[in-house]
Simulated assay, not measured.
Amino acid sequence: MRRSAPTLALLLALAGLTGTTALTACTAPDEQPPPAPAGLTAQAGSASSVHVMWEAAAEADGVTRYRVFEGGREVRVLAADRTMVDITGLTPQTGYTFTVRAEDAAGNLGAPGPEARVTTPAAKAEDRGAPTAPATTTGAATGPRSARLSWTPSTDDTGVTAYDIHQGGVRIHTVGPGESGTTLTGLRPDTVYTFTVRARDGADNSSPDGPPVDVTTPPASGEGPGTAPADFTATASPGAVTLSWTAPDTGRETSEYELFVNGKPTTVVQFGAGAVPAGRAEHRLSVSEPAGTTWAVKLRARLPDGTWGAFSAERTITLTP
């Protein structure tokens, strides 16, 4: 007698999968590593340090950290929001080779990108004099997320080894001694940036800041007009600080601004009904802090939808007696 093949129902019953028991699909583990970081550069900042930078991974790559290697030896592990690092404790007049590998949440380690090679300059133990500050700085946005800066070269008794670009008191980029300009990427659309440039020599002496330059990135396509207050100024006088700016074009009168001092929200400036300035606005703050106190101030406007707009440029002032 020929036996028939077991039915699916019988197989499920034998396996105990009858009734309300559901079959679930197995999810394959994430075994796809992220791509290699692009745009890796290495620039000697002094006789014993190198500044390593690379381009941020795309959000879709799921990168959670970067691992930095020198000559195949891991020297730093950084969170995904960090795309630059200073490697210190190096030997003068020595060649180094750096690579960076991206890692995702599943622990998949991507391949290294192209190597970046650099040689540290000779040490100058007696060099205690800082370079001169760049005399001029110019800048302009080249798109919603990029800008081009240029500066006047500095001088130093032993030679400039690098130029550091700062924004908001933080170094964001470093280029070599022969450069007098650079392109900055990874910026935000519709944002005012205030950049300064410092020169550095082989003993890690940094110059004072060169003159600041404001750069406003345009809104990205479809984002509408800019929301940052323009032409922001801050002037200290005995017992007071006077702020002045041009209101952003938000489609209606802008009567409320949030003021930040040294990176922290301090007060909200409000103009009452009938007192909202047209075009140019001004506000005077009474201060009680001692003379010589340094403030870094910036502000942003309340938009018609209730959210805060982009920040103005940041101004640094010293309070007067």
Results as ranks from 00 to 15, higher is better:
R3D: 14
L17R: 08
A22D: 07
L23T: 08
D30E: 14
D30G: 04
G45L: 09
V50T: 02
M53A: 15
E55S: 15
A56M: 11
A58H: 10
Y66G: 02
G71Y: 00
V77Y: 09
A80S: 08
Y96T: 08
T99C: 05
D104S: 01
D104Y: 04
L109F: 04
P114R: 10
P114I: 00
E115C: 04
A116Y: 04
A123P: 09
A125T: 11
D127C: 08
G129K: 14
T138L: 14
P144I: 00
R148S: 10
R148A: 11
T158C: 10
T161S: 11
G168P: 01
G168A: 06
H173L: 11
T174H: 08
G181V: 03
T183A: 12
T183R: 14
P189E: 03
F195G: 00
T196H: 02
P212E: 07
D214G: 01
S221H: 11
E223C: 08
P225A: 05
G226T: 04
F232K: 04
A234F: 07
P238G: 05
L243G: 05
G251A: 01
R252H: 13
E256H: 08
G263V: 05
T266C: 10
G272K: 09
G274N: 00
P277G: 02
R280N: 07
E289H: 12
P290Q: 03
T294I: 10
K298N: 13
K298M: 13
L303G: 03
W308F: 03
A313K: 10
I317S: 02
T318G: 03
